[in-house]
Amino acid sequence: MNTNNNGYTIIYATVMVVIVALMLALVSSALKDTQTANVELDKKKQILASLNIDLEGKDAAAIYNEYIVEELVINHKAEILDSTEFCAFKIDFLKELAKAETERELPIYVAKVDGKTKYIMSMKGTGLWGPIWGYVALNEDKNSIYGSYFSHASETPGLGAEIAYKPFQKSLIDKKILGADLTFKSLLVLKPDNKPNSEYEIDGISGGTITSKAVEKMIFNCLGQYKAFYDIKVEGGAK
């Protein structure tokens, strides 16, 4: 058979592309449900990680239901828009960030750890090579940080990617986001040589300055959206 003939080449290419496309479509749709379940489970794990819960070998979905007692969706004035089950979980935070600030629906996860209330805020930002994201859990005072979680899509391993590891995430614990007058102040991520010496500063990652600064910007932008929420005193009745 002459395999160099034009007609044969075109038919060969067409058939090949159709077969491969069918095969990939089949694989993709067959695995879709498992993948979505994985993504959701992973999101739950990330939220729980900000509460410093060790999930090693445990059922994250069950622990999530145990710790997260309420989910809220608020607007920029801290008015509660929704508080039904999984209402915050269903929000696509990236889509909300694309809207004007006054129209955003902001998710808050309310957790109870040892009887104390914690508020978990979502964050999304842009790192050096791609998106970065995370969750910060605030104590009952809506000021000091109880725990944090950061992750990234493609930061440099060993450098910027270190934000996804415990040493960096633990450095946020007990830091504060509100100034002395209780207005929003955010955190500074310092260059590694400058030792953090106040409760508003954390140590950056050596060799990962751009990622460190991206984290700083993300904390400022995302936690800043909840400004009105911090003003509501717990006794005053956020709930």
């Binding site: 395999t3 160099n4 003939n5 044969y8 080449t9 060969y12 290419a13 090949m16 592309v17 491969v20 095969m23 990939l24 694989v27 993709s28 695995l31 498992t34 993948q35 994985n38």
Partner: peptide, 27 residues
């Protein structure tokens, strides 16, 4: 394989396998 498009054919096979592996890993 038609000789003139053999590199494309090879690339399609590799790309399909890589996509399948990546989908399976994700699941």
């Amino acid at each position: 394989i038609p000789n003139r498009i053999r590199i494309i054919v090879q690339l399609v096979v590799v790309a399909a396998l890589v996509t399948v592996v990546s989908e399976i890993l994700k699941a």
